[in-house]
């Protein structure tokens, strides 16, 4: 087996995550799908790190995790406050920004 297989897996997971974002209406699940995409990216980073024989890819994956953590914190806070205001966690309900 060649480590390229990890990249194929990463691409697959990323696509599944992306489709999930498009299909799910529950904001929490949408967020999970975004996390899935970020993780797929991390896997690619780690694989590239191994392929190139240096640790920079891992550092990037590390930073991605930090940013993802920050994003989750803020995103979930937003979901909670939206839920408080509208009693709904559906992303389709927040559709006022239109004509």
């Amino acid at each position: 087996m060649n480590p390229v297989s990890y990249l194929y897996l990463s691409a697959l997971l990323f696509t599944i995550g992306g489709v999930g974002v498009l299909l799910r209406r529950n904001a929490i699940v949408v967020f999970m799908c975004v996390e899935l995409m970020l993780n797929a990216c991390n896997l690619a980073f780690v694989t590239f790190s191994r392929m190139h024989g240096n640790l920079d890819g891992q550092v990037f994956a590390f930073f991605t995790m930090v940013v993802a953590a920050a994003e989750v914190v803020v995103g979930l806070a937003i979901i909670v406050s939206v839920y408080r205001a509208r009693h709904s966690a559906s992303v389709d309900d927040a559709s006022l920004l239109k004509l």
Binding site: A27, I28, M32, V73, L76, D92
Partner: peptide, 17 residues
Amino acid sequence: IMMLFLFVVMLVGVTAA
């Protein structure tokens, strides 16, 4: 992070979404 998700799921509860 996943525990955070579970907490929010618990807070929000089950919805039509």
